[in-house]
Amino acid sequence: MFPIETISARMLDYYVGRNDALIIDLREEKAYAESHVRGAVNIPYETLENRKDLPMNKILVFYCDRGGASMAAAREFVRRGYRTRSVIGGFAAYRGRNLVIS
């Protein structure tokens, strides 16, 4: 089992565009449509439990609005055998260069 690792919102840019990472936005579809981190896929937290199709060979980098849901998601997926990262402070703390605003 892999450890649950946390990263700062500033560190999120490190994972953008990497082939070994999948950035997952856990917020509702409307919030994602308004703004998100470039390259992130939107999987609302409420639907995550049923997902069995996420790649085992990638680091799953979770972020939500403030950080609580991403920590819960990281904990669950570590239990399933994935490597994960949870963004401390969530999207509210993100001020990076990969911000997409619709």
Rank of each mutant, 00 (worst) to 15 (best):
T84M: 08
L60E: 07
Y14I: 05
A69K: 15
K58I: 01
A9S: 11
L99V: 13
A92F: 10
Y63K: 02
E76K: 15
L60M: 11
R95K: 14
G90T: 09
G68K: 05
T47A: 10
I88V: 15
L99T: 12
V78Y: 02
E5C: 13
G17M: 10
V37C: 07
K52S: 13
G17E: 06
S70F: 03
G67Q: 04
I23S: 01
Y45E: 02
R79Q: 12
P3I: 00
A9V: 03
N50T: 09
V100L: 07
T84P: 00
R18C: 04
R80F: 02
R85V: 09
A72P: 03
N57R: 14
I23Y: 09
N98E: 06
S102L: 07
G96S: 10
E34T: 06
Y32T: 09
E5N: 14
A93F: 01
A21N: 01
A69P: 02
D13Q: 10
P3D: 09
A33C: 08
M11W: 00
G39P: 05
L48A: 07
L12T: 12
N98Y: 15
N42Q: 05
P3V: 00
D53H: 11
D20Q: 14
L54P: 00
K52Q: 13
A92R: 14
N50G: 13
I7N: 06
G96A: 13
D53L: 10
F62E: 08
D65V: 07
T84Q: 05
A69R: 15
A72S: 10
G39W: 05
R97N: 05
A73P: 02
L48M: 10
I7R: 02
A31M: 09
C64T: 01
M56F: 13
A31L: 13
L22A: 06
R75N: 06
